[in-house]
Design a protein around this nucleic acid. Structure first.
Lengths: 241, 241
DNA sequence: CGTTAACTTGATTTGAATCAAGAGCAGTGG
DNA sequence: CCACTGCTCTTGATTCAAATCAAGTTAACG
């Protein structure tokens, strides 16, 4: 295995370290641990002591929370350049969810103590972390409102649009979500069942709005999906011909 | 109106300023603005530029998010010693919800610029803020999972238990939630309707679990509420006799 | 090529929303 | 002081979206 050289250029891309000078970045790089993470690896588990702050250089990680009786919620997907597990380190010290590598990944991490020192020395890092965590709080609050007040179809539309924004890849006939995403995953993001998601996607597929396959979704008409998400009046679809 | 003297002792109680030395606290106090806030006042509105970091010395503030078509979500209730509106200042700069004084309050605030400087000078404040925001993120994620996977009755039980924890006041026959709380409010916390909340509370009242009146709820048997929230097997209630 | 996981689709049930009507209290103003 | 007005809350009847129950079908993988 290649001894992955931590590259300052990559770390500079992380929002967590934006606005720092070269000296600070050099120190951050020195104290980082980089490693490959195989698809399927559990990076940390719900309930573990939060001893490491993570960030993703490449790949895709799923954060999943499990309830007392096994019900699961997909909290978010992490992409390249995003940190994860860091909020837990500085609030409570216990990871509140599992982190799962959905594909082969490259990750970096710092120990809690190291990151704490870095933040004390470079308050900018703490401010950046506050920024990121604050945005996630807002996003989760918005999902909470959607879940409280919207029908399943709209919630699924919102979820797909969110995924397109953070993991969309242009392909010939639309935008594809660039990691394996099952019906079950979508259900766990939107608080419904895989059956309902399957029916909804089938319906949309019939209207040419999306294309989908095994663990794979392509959005062909993003505007139509936006119309559903925003509950705009949409053109009628004649039943026949 | 009394020119409320900002009291360092009070500010020391805020988690946001824990672990700071006397000099730092003195500076924080010097830069704070204290004021009375009348019941019913809108402290800030969703969509406003987030220009102030707030904290509550006394009273109760409701944070409410409104969706495009007027659906509302009660994001949280703020009590004495808690900060609010601060995450918005450092992530995006727009308040994502309204803040409403539920009773007469005493509040403190700092301008965004002042708080930014304080955090740069005393990284500890930024770390504390990260701690608080991280905890709220966890709490909201937990609510999201509950909303996705639990029935209304359990969600209402969880919501009441949360309120008891943060705003419970021992009274003769149980624990009372110490601010005006309508059925509508509970509905907006749990993603249901006031009708359903009313039916549930009526049911519990019949079993002696809670007592309730106009904008007022008292928990008489917290253990029974926990049993409902955790979905534990509960003693049967014979229909007759 | 068989086994397993992901997905589809139909039938039935059900929890909670919606529709609908009225009762109880609190503050207002005559 | 009391009628009026407007919330807040209760309760019943009905409807409906989505869960659950129940078989399959399809596609990947060893």
């Amino acid at each position: 295995m290649t001894p992955l050289a931590p590259d300052p250029a990559v770390l500079r891309g992380l929002r967590l370290f934006s606005g720092l000078d070269a000296a600070a970045l050099a120190e951050i790089v020195r104290s980082a641990h980089t490693r490959r993470i195989e698809k399927g690896t559990t990076i940390f588990s719900q309930g573990d002591r939060a001893a490491l702050c993570h960030a993703l250089i490449d790949g895709r990680v799923k954060i999943v929370q499990t309830g007392a009786d096994g019900q699961q919620l997909v909290v978010r997907y992490i992409g390249a350049g995003e940190m994860f597990g860091t909020a837990a380190v500085f609030s409570g010290g216990i990871y509140p969810a599992d982190a799962l590598a959905m594909v082969d990944c490259v990750g970096v991490h710092w120990t809690a103590a190291t990151m704490g020192e870095l933040m004390e020395r470079y308050p900018r890092i703490a401010l950046n972390a506050l920024d990121v965590v604050g945005r996630r709080l807002q996003e989760v609050q918005t999902r909470l409102r959607e879940l409280s007040t919207e029908r399943v179809e709209r919630r699924v539309a919102h979820a797909l649009l969110r995924l397109v924004r953070q993991a969309g890849r242009r392909v010939g006939n639309g935008v594809e979500i660039d990691f394996p995403l099952s019906r079950q995953d979508i259900a766990e993001m939107t608080g419904t069942t895989l059956h309902t998601v399957s029916r909804i996607l089938s319906g949309w597929e019939g209207q040419g709005i999306v294309g989908s396959g095994r663990q794979q979704v392509t959005i062909r008409q993003p505007h139509a999906l936006v119309a559903i998400a925003e509950d705009l009046p949409r053109p009628e679809r004649p039943e026949e011909k």
